[in-house]
Each structure stands twice: as structure tokens, then as C-alpha cells.
Design a protein around this nucleic acid. Structure first.
Lengths: 119, 119
DNA sequence: CAGCTAAATAACCATGTGGTGAAGTAGCGT
DNA sequence: ACGCTACTTCACCACATGGTTATTTAGCTG
């Protein structure tokens, strides 16, 4: 289910480029050919082709062959894995703060009669 | 709330490195000094220092000053933004497939008496 | 077949990144 | 004041990345 470290590296790295994120966003709406994907960008086709190869290598997209066209298709897996990694760490972070919150509440309770705005 | 494109670039790029992800995971459990963060890695301190600068520049961590120590603290914002971006695209992706699913169901219903396994 | 279109590949370039060792800075302890 | 500790910054290196133009491959079409 979850990707290996290397695949996670590649997925995050792939998403770190605005052109590639835009391509992913476009593909979320439906498959598209390379020329269709390239159209919105002020970039040569080989440039787009390189980006697509990056996306393909990390599993974010797959490509079929249809006549001369190579329609690109967004794959969900890497996005899921990326979110999973972040969510897991946010969970740990949040739980820790919940505990801290309880702790502070305890302290406040035990010093309820003292001042409460020092520093 | 959401980061700019550049900040999103930086956040994803920061998370693309396994050392930096490990540092983030460590910090999710609580603040730590540079030496504490460096300990698990087979890497010199300047190397860690560079990684921390990357994390700091994209807002993933902040650093206080306490005596000679520079305790690092994980900030939640960029993680939230990264997840938001991905979630938004997954949402579009999912909705599309739901529609497709309905469409296929319609087709299957209207050709219910025909063959159903042609390509 | 020739020729067009879609896309990939090759060769190249500038810049960025991840790492190093060596030197510098800042604050505490004696 | 002196050194120790905790880090940062500097100068450098090898390699990856993002982009280009020019060339090549693959497949349709006349």
C-alpha cells in the first residue's frame, strides 16, 4: 500500500514542481495527450515530455498508446501515500499537543488562585 | 491559509528528502536541538544544518535560541497546505470516477441483454 | 511511397542540491 | 580570559534538475 522511501522521495519531488502539479491537476479532470497537457504552458514539448517522464517514473501517471497519441492517466497511489505520510506525522504532532493541553489544564487547575498572565 | 505556489514548491521539495522527512518525524514527537536531530544520521553537522535551513525556509520548522542551543520546532502550516493541495486534486479525481461509474452503470443497464465483456 | 503529426530522445547548458572538511561565531563554565 | 560546546558559514565538489534546440521514432493519411 504505502510506497518505499525512494518512491516517497520521488513522489514529493515530483509534486515540488509547479508545472508538474499543474499537469497533475489537469489530469485529475481526465486523461489527456501530451500536446493537450503542453498547451497551457510556455514551454517546449521536450520540456513537458521530461516532466511527464518524472511523473511516470514515480507512478503518478501511466501512459497508454493510442495511434500516435500517448494519453496520460493520473494514478492515485502516490498521492495516497504522500498524504498518508503527512497525516501520520500530523497525528503524532496533534496527539502530543493534546497531551500538552491537558497538562497545562492540570497546572492551571492546581494554581487556580494565582496570577495567570505572567510572560 | 494556503501557501503560495512558491511556498508549496518549497514544502514539497523539503519533504522529498528522506533525511528531512526523518527530521520532521522526529520533531513531530517534540522539539529538539540540532545535535539531537543529527545523532541518528551518518552525516556531518553542516549537512544537518543545511537540511534545517531548507526546512526553516519553507516554514516547516522554526528555531528559538536558548543558551548555545537552537531548539527546532515543527510548524504545522506547510504540512496542512501540502495535504490540502493533494486532497483537492483527489477530490476532483474521485468525483470524476463517481460520474464515470454512474455512466457505466447507465450503459450497462441500457445494454443489459447484450454481451458485456468486449474489450 | 511521401509526408504529416505526436511524441520521444540526444546533446547540451546553467543552476540547484546534497554532501564534505575547515574555519568562524555565540554563549556558557571555570 | 580561556576554553568548551553548539552550531553556522564558507569554499568546494559531484551530480541531479529544468530548460533549450535539433534529431529521431512511430503511426496515420493521401
Amino acid at each position: 500500500m504505502t510506497l518505499t522511501e525512494n518512491q516517497l522521495d520521488a513522489a514529493f519531488a515530483a509534486l515540488a514542481d509547479p508545472t508538474r502539479r499543474a499537469i497533475v491537476s489537469r489530469l485529475a479532470k481526465g486523461d489527456a495527450t501530451v500536446n493537450e497537457l503542453a498547451a497551457p504552458f510556455d514551454m517546449t514539448l521536450p520540456g513537458i515530455s521530461k516532466h511527464l517522464k518524472v511523473l511516470e517514473r514515480c507512478g503518478l501517471i501511466s501512459r497508454r498508446r493510442h495511434a500516435q497519441f500517448r494519453p496520460c492517466h493520473l494514478e492515485r497511489g502516490p498521492l495516497d501515500s504522500a498524504v498518508s505520510w503527512i497525516e501520520e506525522n500530523r497525528r503524532i504532532w496533534t496527539e502530543r499537543f493534546d497531551k500538552l493541553d491537558h497538562h497545562l489544564r492540570d497546572i492551571q487547575q492546581s494554581t487556580a488562585e494565582g496570577t495567570n498572565d505572567h510572560e
